[in-house]
């Protein structure tokens, strides 16, 4: 196998890795906010349930969670769902990352001084206006460095999809390396992850900079 065939074979894996990455962010970034707000709910039943959910998501390996989502429906309920591999991966990643993002959001929300809420209340803003216009923009600025950390971790965590034999870049690297007795696929995978995270760093630094106009 020539280097270029190796590369073109792995390109399909890179696309699949990107899909996991993009869909996970698309799902978990907003879901995390919902989870964070429910975590702050007045109803202890709701906040208690969310606490347990976050605790499980953070307290068990993502690899194990992926296996549970993939095999759980069959072993627990005897369901045979067609084409379940990819949805199970996305479900596992989104629910796991939403828990982490929720805690980051919560930290951000709780760091906003109570005076901001009071000023907004006295000026007659509704609760929704206060959150969307006054609180959230400030939260986003505060949490950006932590979010960057999570996004970089996610790029590397996509490799966990190999547990479910999903042909993303890491799975392919392992396969090709074994069949061709070559170290090269691992090197290609390594460079791919590094370049991807380099792009993430640049993009996130830009976003952070765009919010530099105030302190």
């Amino acid at each position: 196998m020539t280097f270029s065939t190796m590369l073109s074979t792995m390109a399909s894996g890179m696309w699949k890795t990107f899909l996991i990455f993009a869909l996970t962010l698309l799902g978990s970034l907003p879901l995390g906010m919902v989870v964070a707000l429910l975590r702050r709910s007045r109803f202890s039943l709701v906040s208690g349930f969310i606490k347990v959910y976050i605790s499980i998501m953070r307290g068990t390996p993502l690899m194990l969670q992926l296996l549970v989502w993939y095999f759980g429906p069959f072993y627990l309920f005897g369901w045979n769902i067609g084409n379940w591999r990819f949805p199970a991966i996305i479900l596992g990643f989104v629910l796991n990352y939403a828990a982490y993002f929720a805690e980051i959001y919560r930290g951000g929300i709780e760091s906003i001084p109570v005076g901001q809420y009071e000023a907004a209340e006295v000026l007659g803003y509704t609760k929704t206006q206060t959150f969307m216009k006054i609180i959230l923009p400030q939260v986003v600025k505060i949490i950006m460095p932590s979010v960057t950390n999570e996004v970089i971790t996610l790029v590397k965590d996509t490799s966990l999809a190999f547990t479910l034999a999903y042909a993303e870049v890491f799975s392919l690297a392992k396969q090709i390396s074994a069949s061709q007795s070559s170290f090269m696929p691992f090197l290609i995978a390594g460079i791919f992850y590094f370049v991807a995270n380099y792009v993430v760093e640049i993009v996130m630094a830009r976003i952070e900079k765009s919010m530099d106009y105030y302190k």
Binding site: G115, Q116, A119, Y214, K215
Partner: peptide
């Protein structure tokens, strides 16, 4: 008017 001003920083 608050002691700590509470202007919106953004």
């Amino acid at each position: 008017v608050f002691q700590q001003f509470n202007l919106f920083p953004h």
